[in-house]
Amino acid sequence: MSAVLKLDGLAKSFPVGKRLLGAPRGLVHAVQPVDLVVAQGETLGIVGESGCGKSTLARMLVGLLPPSEGTIEINGAPLDNADPAEFGKKIQYVFQDPISSLNPRKTIRQVMEAPLKRLHGLDRAQREKRISEIFASVNLREEFLDRYPHEFSGGQAQRIGIARALAAEAKILILDEPVSALDVSVQAQVLNLLADLKAKLGLTYLFISHDLAVVEAVSDRVAVLYFGSVVEVGRAEDIFRAPRHPYTQLLARSAPVVGRALSAPEGKETELPDPLNPPAGCAFKARCPRATEECGQRVPKLEGDAAHRVACFHPLEG
């Protein structure tokens, strides 16, 4: 398997307290330097709770946000220009809110034509043909093309969003919470469609979600994000069954599961650290039952073999 997407020290910080001129008052590190490799045909799941930086990461990957540090490589070629159109042909994005990702004043046909015209310069007849092909592959009827977004349900709109991403013919798709706005009975339809498309078109997915069960069900590997850092990466079947980072364990135990008694897995009433005033050392230490003095002194590095890596001084036995 070859790496199609490689992130090397990719990081993003936002200035806070901007002034009209001169330097900002401070920086919030939304994403700490991240190294990740995604193989051809793989689905890499990224889980984390709100504020962990997963959406910022996704937006950097498609060029909607310029990274503060680090590089993105696609098929070995660095992608460092911030031109979304360049990104667009290589990597595409499926949005969380399917309705608001469609311009309310454009027909679906206009939405679909934009990438075909701007990225691939197809003429009218070619566009017509491509749209038919794509719509067939996402099980949408062509009569939808002349309607406006508000006429669609969430599930249909998300299929349209996927169809638009496919129109760019990028081989990598960033799926940013693609089903969390949908009802459970429709969720499964969309997830299955994504699986089919991946097999048929040889796509590579980065699947971002806060829903552990969904991520586990669709991913080959999963990366767990906490406070802007990857704290654990491993195979989907292992990571929640036998977590090594205490945070992953906490997540897995918090998810409500039929047949498991209710318990607060965390005795302490704890919260995320303040991003403006991040703690020294491991960001999880205040919530961690295994924390020692060492955890407050240095930031643990992501270490381990290729199959399973964890950023913790005192990892659990997997």
Partner: peptide, 16 residues
């Protein structure tokens, strides 16, 4: 059709 944690990678039962 609701995936449950611990079920591993699988195809979900969708309701059409």
């Amino acid at each position: 059709c609701v995936p449950e944690l611990g079920g591993g990678r699988r195809r979900l039962e969708a309701i059409p």
